[in-house]
Design a protein around this nucleic acid. Structure first.
Lengths: 191, 191
DNA sequence: GTGATTATTTGACCTGTGTCAAATTTTTGC
DNA sequence: GCAAAAATTTGACACAGGTCAAATAATCAC
């Protein structure tokens, strides 16, 4: 487990049970079937979507091409940060890649709890810090690594993506064409 | 001014003057001469560095090549987020590109004020949120635009970088070779 | 199971951008 | 103001990775 996530979990576990219960009181579970969208461009993202079961992804369309920016497994949080923070229309899709179960953490209810308990505010801040650092690392991957290197890194850091998802989605997450990813795969599987 | 920064400024201006004064009580000003480093790899980043006067940048070295990740002008905040949050050794340099005046906001003093006043914690959280969104946009630029398009966008969004800094630094910020940036510039200056 | 659809691989070719080297322009020190 | 150093431009060439098309493999519907 990533050290940032570990810190958040540790803190979360050490919350006063009362506070913990109050936070979770606002949670609502929901199911989505494979291929459906949890968020679409134009909508305002008004919640954190905590994945309980299944796989989802966030992507946007640029020049008729899908670009996958994030892939969510169990315990990951799907959100359009930009839309959520500024309460403006999202420009991304969040799509269920399998049948999916999520816990919905509503913006305004969460805000109430954060105002009431500083430690929850702190957890939320840590989540954003983690997110910022994650973006920084992802940016670094694009600035320093070629397609093969990014693929190898993905295999090491997120093997589930390569193992469980079609080449087309892995390719769009690595920002290469599927043909190129296919060639990279054949190059490495021979050795 | 960027809408996120505007929100932070607005909120900051509406702070109770007492609280505002207490926050700024911990600020310390410092000068750096051109070419000196405010942070180097191996050090732990223990403060926000608010630029008052001059220009600075953050960069790291990969395969003997400098990659500039951020450029700071008046009112920008220089920080190695990763190092600051996790209190671990930084892997970046922060360098004064001109003679520089900064306000140093020390980690532990700032933490005290944040604990005491929820509105300061809120401001800090907004800063990180802004940072995360900024990273997301920068990532998008690398995923969707070629070198010329990134240059045009930079001219529009951050003309001071192109106008005030040497080609070598602009190039490393755009993640292209200086030769390529030079060709892009000549292509556009003729028209 | 079989045909149809979809996903993946392979081939041919092209373009953007990197590298190395050389030429030119600008800046700096004295 | 001039020589030396540094920055920028220009040229020649190589190659990663994109596109389009075709072949093959895997999956799905019934």
């Amino acid at each position: 487990m990533n050290p940032y996530i570990r810190r958040i979990k540790d803190l979360s576990n050490r919350l006063d049970p009362q506070v913990h219960a109050e936070m979770e009181g606002g949670f609502v579970d929901k199911k989505f079937s494979k291929g459906s969208f949890l968020l679409q461009p134009g909508q305002i993202c008004t919640s954190h979507l905590l994945v309980k079961e299944g796989v989802a992804r966030k992507f946007y369309i640029h020049n008729d091409k899908e670009i996958t920016t994030e892939i969510y497994f169990h315990d990951d949080v799907a959100i359009s940060l930009d839309s959520y923070i500024m309460r403006k229309a999202a420009d991304v899709y969040i799509e269920a890649l399998t049948d999916l179960e999520v816990t919905i953490i509503d913006y305004s209810r969460f805000l109430d709890v954060k105002k009431k308990y500083a430690e929850i505010m702190m957890l939320d801040k840590m989540f954003i810090e983690y997110y910022a650092v994650w973006f920084e690392q992802r940016l670094k991957a694009f600035q320093t690594m070629d397609a093969s290197q990014r693929y190898i890194q993905l295999l090491e850091k997120e093997p589930r993506i390569v193992q469980q998802l079609p080449v087309s989605i892995t390719a769009s997450y690595l920002n290469v064409s599927l043909e190129t990813l296919s060639r990279i795969r054949s190059k490495f599987s021979l050795r």
